[in-house]
């Protein structure tokens, strides 16, 4: 493929949306209230919508009659390039909100830069996504405050969730080869540039939610290179079940 870097760059962004959308989809019907069920489904639908736009673009690059679904469903685990953060399980509602918020702050910063990409398709997808993700961040941020500064029980659960998920945040700001190349030609984003702004914004909200900001000491990396946590295989087993069990069919 002549646009190998562009292709890998798109997957890096799109896979995170797909996997997070998939995780949220698991929750439908099991949330703490009907209202939150409906809200989380909206977020999931936004993410899957974004994923489709990215994959349709990526499919065009491969050509050969490939479709968004070939990309979504027919890769092996090592070929998914999402960050580790988004594949973490729905341990409880606080965990879900913590994962969401830690991703949303990053996601909005990423799209806000990507909308200036010299690649018109990416710029357009980003511009549309910004509005959606702004709302995601508002929603998850509000919940961090409610749970952090709610009851003792919710505070403890929220703090545990933040402490657990913190180790996956630094990966958001690592640059793959494709990232670096795309950033050099102004079609991709140099994520390292907003790393400090990210930690500042997240820390401010955590403090407002009476939560402690964990130390930035030990981190886990790998998702962007296709080396995932053990949760990923099970997630993919669900995601890919139909396409694997019934290959080459239309649905």
């Amino acid at each position: 493929m002549k646009n190998e870097n562009l292709y890998r760059y798109i997957l890096g962004i799109a896979d995170s949306s797909l996997i997070l959308g998939q995780r949220l989809g698991e929750l439908c019907g099991h949330g703490p209230s009907l209202e939150t069920d409906i809200a989380l489904t909206n977020i999931s639908l936004d993410l899957i919508g974004q994923t489709r736009s990215y994959y349709q673009y990526a499919a065009k690059l491969i050509g050969d009659g490939k479709s968004e679904d070939d990309i979504a469903f027919l890769r092996i685990e090592r070929e998914y390039l999402n960050v580790l953060l988004v594949e973490q399980p729905n341990t409880h509602f606080g965990y879900v909100m913590a994962r969401q918020f830690l991703f949303d702050v990053y996601h909005l910063m990423l799209l806000s830069e990507l909308k200036n990409s010299s690649d018109e398709t990416l710029a357009a997808i980003a511009a549309k996504g910004i509005k959606e993700v702004s709302y995601h961040k508002r929603f998850s941020g509000d919940w961090i405050k409610r749970l952090g500064d709610g009851t003792q029980e919710s505070h403890d659960k929220m703090q545990d969730a933040i402490n657990d998920l913190w180790r996956y945040t630094d990966e958001l700001f690592t640059m793959t080869e494709a990232d670096a190349e795309m950033s050099r030609n102004n079609s991709g984003v140099d994520v390292t540039r907003f790393k400090e702004a990210y930690y500042e914004e997240v820390s401010r909200l955590l403090r407002e939610a009476t939560l402690e900001v964990p130390e930035r000491k030990y981190f886990q990396y790998g998702g962007k290179k296709g080396v995932h946590t053990e949760h990923m295989g099970y997630l993919l087993a669900d995601l890919q079940y139909m396409q694997r069990a019934y290959p080459n069919m239309k649905w």
Binding site: F93, L147, G150
Partner: peptide, 10 residues
């Protein structure tokens, strides 16, 4: 499982 969440919000 949602009780602690609803209580916290209140």
């Amino acid at each position: 499982n949602g009780e602690w969440v609803r209580d916290a919000a209140v």
